[in-house]
Design a protein around this nucleic acid. Structure first.
Lengths: 219, 219, 219, 219
DNA sequence: CATGAATGAGGATTCATTCAT
DNA sequence: CATGAATGAATCCTCATTCAT
């Protein structure tokens, strides 16, 4: 007899899954995507859980099935986004051999990502830093993976004689990140009007850095 | 005899001022100073007006006699602090003639300020950006004065043949600010343990920048 | 078998509704009822949202799910109560044909409502006018529906020759409302001790009004 | 020697007194006058002590030298204003002998006062009732003097056979006050545009009342 | 008497989070 | 898993009142 009883929850689940597959998005992804859009526009404290839920088309409570709380939604979001970015970096670097070429590719990729996904960039450059919890909990591994890539490039460059070796890798890595991040921020806050500038910016910084990193003959 | 009549109201005023001078603080300054200390420690949203009031030894309401609201306390604080910093920069640059010397002095001064007043630095590098209102209202003139100084040095350097002229001044200015700010932030978040590193950091960045900015002979 | 499967979500809904019906109150009605009781006792500004919430047995925040804010709680309350009163007036008038009978019935009904629901009367005669917002937003349609009923009776009375026609309907309507409202207020502020007086008051005013409204033979 | 010492406070006092005499106003009167103006415009709770002080040209604290607190400023204001009004009523009635003439004069005077001093009227009809304290403390002697005048006229009218004697004097007095007050309120809230209407209103109400109060021959 | 800087109690409102359904 | 009604802690700011001058 039981065979004829329709399990509604399952039915709905199937329907839901079908709908989601159609949209190509799991519920978690829908929430993350909604969060990116709303957070980028309004900032952390002006964004309400309800806003994200509405944008994602789910109930408020649903968000708590996928994320521990508002702060951790941001943290998870960051990790997700960062891992995507790291893949892009890896992709961009894999066919470059010389360290200077790698550095150039890396910096260009950074700004290209900013241009292609300004909302994600806005979150990384602005929103993350609005959450006291994020700042507090992420002190150490903040952007360590990102920094690692630069550090690796610098190290390889020094070892292969492409870059000077008389400067500190962690410090220069950090400085490079800061420079790129600030350029991205300036572009984001300027309403992204000067579209091409960002590419040009990269060129100038690359020029400056590569020359500065060159082994200095006489001095 | 009238000459000897003491104007009491004036006496009291003087006494009050003397007392304040002894403490080195008007009430407004006491509040600002308390705000710096508390904000640097807890961040913008975790800092309650009551916290600042207690630290300053005044009543909550007193804060509103001197500042429009919590956001504007931060804004006023920023302006006060920024103008002090600009004076220090001016001081540091006034006896340097060559642009490269000026740039070096400027960058060293930046990090020296961070070391001397880490709380102020913390506010500028971290807390300001936690206030959506600050970000919103300060989009344009954000750190424009700071950027102007770098830009002026770069311009002079290019005109006097000390610096290469084939790169964009606004972009490089911005990048330099970002680099310095990030170094400061890293030091601040690392609990300021590696005290000397900051000075050394400056040296490495200065080296890199000056060499990068040099007119490149062969290329 | 599927026919017999109980839809649980619906069941729970029903149970909740049943429970509420048992108490005769949806949550919104519970809040309104609590508001009437507390507001009537303490007045608008002495009534705290927390007081109403406690009286209604809900959390403070729940009130804001049903009402925009404290002022609009009062406005919604007024509209609810006014529409109930208008129904009672309609009921009382429907089987009266002659205008003088209608006027008498109307005035008696007014004071009867005051006696039956003194808290509601207190709110209309006293509390509403304590809210600057209510006064401001309700200038025009203040008690217009109430006034309309009187005006209609007067008009019919004049047309059918029951009432004199040499006086202004809007003015007399207003004056009648003022007279009734003041009697109600006096009774309410006197702690409702002189219970029968209100009925008697009606009789005297009715007598006076009907004679005053009569067509005067010689003059 | 003391003779030559200039007592500044006395000097200032004299100057102040002179100034006040010139303006014809004591400080207390200036405050009351300012209060009337500000209270009438903004209502009780929207009026801040600071507003009144500014309008009066005195310091906030000065108000507390003349009035116990904000609520009692309103109470004192009411008493001052009421006593002025009672004088006007007395004046208007003193040469009328017959009760019906007195009643007519009284009602006309009421509305005339409203027209001449709309701010005072606004305070009596609107502002007083916004103060929970006023309502609470003034329950009994609310407008008793005003009511007494009407009652006296009614009594005399009944005794001299001008008015019918089969109705309750307190009730009719109250009703008359309510009617007049409501007409005044309607006019005040309508932005006082229909200037002449108020006089006409009086006529209609007088007509109605006098006829209603007439001894009814046949009934 | 007059001042007005300082006080600090007080409360409406928001919103992240929970949990019964 | 999903919902969204309900919760209630948490806080900025106002403003009547005081009192040292």
């Amino acid at each position: 007899m039981a065979y004829f009883v329709i399990d509604e929850s399952r039915l709905y689940l199937d329907e839901r899954l079908m709908m989601e597959e159609k949209l190509g998005t799991s519920k978690r992804e829908r929430i993350l995507s909604a969060a990116i859009s709303v957070l980028a526009e309004r900032g952390f404290h002006r964004t309400k859980i309800k806003d994200i839920a509405q944008e994602a088309g789910v109930a408020d409570g649903t968000i708590y099935l996928y994320f521990k709380n508002k702060d951790h939604l941001l943290i998870d979001l960051f990790e997700e986004v960062m891992s995507r970015a790291l893949n892009l970096f890896e992709e961009a670097l894999k066919d470059k051999e010389r360290a200077d070429q790698q550095l150039e590719a890396f910096l260009l990729t950074h700004l290209r990502i900013v241009e292609l996904e300004p909302e994600v960039a806005q979150i990384i450059s602005v929103v993350l830093r609005q959450s006291e919890t994020f700042i507090g909990e992420y002190k150490n591994p903040f952007f360590s993976e990102y920094l690692n890539i630069i550090a690796k490039i610098l190290k390889q460059g020094m070892e292969t004689g492409v870059f000077r070796a008389d400067i500190s890798i962690p410090i220069i890595s950090r400085a490079i990140f800061g420079a790129m991040d600030e350029l991205a921020l300036a572009w984001l806050l300027s309403n992204k009007r000067e579209d091409e500038v960002l590419e040009m910016a990269a060129q100038d910084v690359v020029t400056l850095l590569l020359d500065g990193l060159q082994i200095q003959s006489s001095e």
